[in-house]
Design a protein around this nucleic acid. Structure first.
Length: 729
DNA sequence: AGCACGCCGACT
DNA sequence: GTCGGCGTGCTC
């Protein structure tokens, strides 16, 4: 790890700011031995001190005013040449500044912050005590003594502040934050023994993965319960016996627990966990363990891919189809695709696993000269052991959100001493509140959506900007008191279930009930211990948790996902249906899935009835081809946002103009059109969808558009470029 | 992203 | 005449 060559006196440093290119800094004599490629630094940048990352060295730069590096932040570098190559690919592919990509390598809390602080000089203190000077000056001095923030001082006193500063009464200094050196502590993981030895399919998959052919991507494909986890664990074990390390990605933080337990049984205290549910302190401690080389396996959510793990020998991406691998803020990367690229650069196997692969991955794996090798786990539970799926046509049904059929099945289930899961992917009591007399629906002031009723909290809430208002007693438009809330969310289902089964404990698991730490745990324990008979929940309840007592799953409305005008809505619905049915009776007890829908004739239900992923895929791929969507076309979504409508529209016209030249034939431009939710947090969102057969061509278009747009764009608007969007609404 | 510099309207 | 608006451009 240590460099043999002495560090040259100048370093190329990438900073975490939206600026292109690296900056040159002098390596001070006393830091010569502690600066490497990949070292995280604090560097002066303009008037501030910012985080920087060493991306190279120079001998003789032809730049004047070179400043010295302020401080080295970590003893060990966060990346090497190969990883840097990977980060540079990400920067180019997702059109994000390199420094922003590199900031993914450490917890955000470690970011260098310069706090500008104004302090009184001795002269200033004397002036204040002596009451010397005009009223305004004294006012300023008093405010500075009280520690009022510079920004608000500026707002209050304007230019007068500069006058006081010039007269030497106050001085400005910067305080660096985030430089503390933390301690490390392994997370408590209770070990769990491996369940059983691999069967023949598993053996074959393990053999293929561990065959050792450098970069080799696999799709491990098999229904829930077919034993993918064991294959991952054996593949990881193999990498570790070769003296290398392993990355194990999961889409949901809750899912990491069981694999981490298995792995820590086999490799005590060599497992690190990285996901957003950790506290800041835990995350930092896990990160430092990884950096110091105290962890051989990192189990975590998408960001774990960038952790400073050295000498990675295998990457596992479980539930590869899951949308949460896509980051929707900052660098809009897809961790699954990034894992493949990192595997290619590191020349190691990458295993994608799923029972319902994404259409792109499956297409890739099925192609005659596909880039991903399929591995089947056929030895699956018998079809008779799979839950029976019933699709209920809800057209013309009246009354509650739960049909008579679903209610009677739930009753039977409870009577047998078993449990039911009622799934609805919408939280709150009702997603709209309506006046019966004038038809007015209560909408958010900042976003173009209706407000959701949260009865328990006694408020209406916007799910986009978190606006909260009290529940109105009368219609704000006509004054009528005839207000209803016809939509259904999990809170309403919970209440309906309580009304129908008053003697049964009904619990709800969604973002609202799981917000407080450990409250989700309590709900899960209630279900596991069978204290609760009915679990109502959003996808949070469906993903990952294995409740053996649940033998009935009711999908309250399959239409929520199906009706979103998005090219992936069928895929998403099908995946949810299969995931939900995977929750029913994993221990062999006869079980049932009931799907309520207004579109029972949709092809995803026919396939879901038979647990037939490939049947679904065959239908879906035809539509994708016809409509020119992935995997046949590559997509990029360009979104222009801003508060001022005129400015946004002007910017969109500029964007369209800048697209004309680079987009020749073979490229489709859809839009501009307002986003499905036109305004969010007061900002208008206009978007253009680009389709192109060739990813390289699309990328070069995006680069040229970005360059031209940033040069010409009016102030007050921002352009977001989303490469390979998972949703285009 | 900040922050300074620079050029046009309403005020002591 | 100045204070301050925000458009423009730079930061090693």
């Amino acid at each position: 790890m240590r460099q043999i060559q002495p560090t040259p006196p100048y370093a190329s440093v990438s900073v975490n700011l939206p600026v292109e290119g690296a900056f040159t800094y002098e390596v001070p004599e006393n830091l010569r031995d502690s600066i490497f490629l990949g070292t995280r630094l604090a560097v002066p940048f303009g008037k501030r001190t910012v985080t920087g990352y060493v991306v190279g060295f120079e001998k003789k730069p032809d730049i004047k005013n070179i400043k010295p590096i302020t401080e080295v932040l970590d003893e060990l570098p966060l990346f090497d040449e190969k990883k840097l190559k990977f980060f540079q690919w990400m920067s180019s592919y997702y059109l994000a500044p390199l420094g922003e990509v590199l900031s993914l390598t450490h917890p955000a809390a470690l970011k260098v912050k310069t706090l500008r602080r104004l302090r009184l000089t001795d002269k200033g203190k004397a002036a204040l005590e002596g009451g010397a000077g005009d009223g305004r000056t004294l006012e300023i001095l008093k405010a500075v003594r009280e520690g009022v923030a510079p920004s608000s001082l500026r707002r209050r006193f304007g230019g007068a502040l500069d006058g006081v500063k010039e007269s030497g009464l106050i001085t400005e200094g910067a305080v660096l934050k985030g430089l503390k050196k933390g301690r490390t502590k392994p997370l408590e993981i209770s070990p769990r023994p491996l369940p059983h030895a691999p069967n023949r399919d598993q053996e074959e998959a393990i053999k293929a993965i561990t065959a050792g052919g450098g970069f080799s991507p696999f799709l491990l494909y098999g229904v829930t319960g077919s034993g993918k986890t064991l294959v991952y664990l054996k593949a990881i074990e193999h990498a570790l016996t070769l003296g290398r390390k392993a990355l194990y990605l999961m889409p949901e933080t809750a899912l990491t627990e069981v694999p981490a337990q298995y792995l820590s049984q086999r490799f005590p205290s060599r497992v690190a966990v990285m996901h957003s549910a950790l506290t800041g302190r835990e995350r930092e401690s896990q990160w430092r363990r990884i950096l110091k080389g105290d962890a051989d396996i990192v189990v975590g959510a998408r960001s774990a891919l960038f952790s400073p793990l050295r000498d990675i020998g295998i990457i596992i991406v479980d539930e590869e189809h899951d949308q949460s691998y896509k980051s929707e803020t900052g660098v809009r990367y897809n961790a699954r695709d990034c894992a493949l690229m990192l595997g290619k650069i590191l020349d190691i196997p990458v295993v994608l696993g799923s029972a319902t692969p994404s259409v792109e991955t499956f297409h890739n794996a099925m192609k005659s000269k596909g880039t991903i090798a399929p591995l089947y786990l056929r030895s699956r539970p018998k079809l008779t052991d799979m839950p029976a799926v019933e699709v209920l046509d809800m057209k013309g049904s009246k009354g509650g959100a739960l049909s008579e059929r679903l209610v009677s099945l739930t009753k039977e289930t409870l009577d047998r001493g078993e449990q039911a899961l009622l799934f609805l992917n919408r939280r709150g009591f009702s997603n709209f509140v309506l006046c019966r007399d004038c038809g007015h629906a209560i909408r958010c002031l900042n976003c173009s959506v209706t407000l959701t009723l949260h009865k328990g909290e006694g408020i209406l809430k916007c799910h986009y900007c978190d606006l909260r208002i009290p529940i109105p007693m009368e219609c704000p438009s006509c004054g009528s008191v005839n207000i209803v809330s016809p939509g259904a969310g999990t809170e309403k289902i919970e209440q309906e279930a309580r009304d129908i089964f008053p003697s049964v404990k009904v619990v709800r698991l969604d973002r609202d009930t799981a917000r407080r730490r450990n409250s989700a745990k309590r709900i899960i324990e209630d279900v596991e211990s069978k204290k609760a008979g009915v679990l109502v929940g959003t996808q949070m309840a469906v993903k990952g948790h294995d409740f053996p007592g649940i033998t009935l799953v009711g999908v309250v409305s399959a239409d929520t996902a199906l009706n979103i005008p998005d090219f992936r809505s069928s895929e998403r619905t099908f995946q949810l249906l299969l995931q939900a049915s995977g929750r029913a009776g994993r221990r062999g007890a006869p079980s049932t899935v009931v799907v309520q829908t207004l579109n029972p004739e949709h092809y995803c239900f026919a396939s879901a009835l038979n647990h037939d992923y490939e049947g679904f895929f065959k239908e879906e791929i035809k539509i994708r081809k016809e409509a020119e969507y992935p995997p046949f076309m590559r997509l990029a979504l360009l979104r222009v946002e801003g508060v001022d409508r005129g400015r946004v529209l002007r910017a969109v016209r500029l964007l369209v103009d800048s697209l004309k030249k680079p987009c020749a034939e073979e490229t489709r431009i859809l839009g501009p059109a307002p986003a499905l939710v036109e305004r969010v947090k007061g900002r208008l969102r206009m978007q253009i969808l680009l389709k192109c057969r060739d990813a390289k061509k699309l990328n070069s278009i995006l680069h040229s558009v970005k360059k031209e747009f940033t040069r010409k764009k009016p102030p007050g608007v921002t352009l977001v470029m989303d490469v390979d969007p998972v949703t285009t609404v």
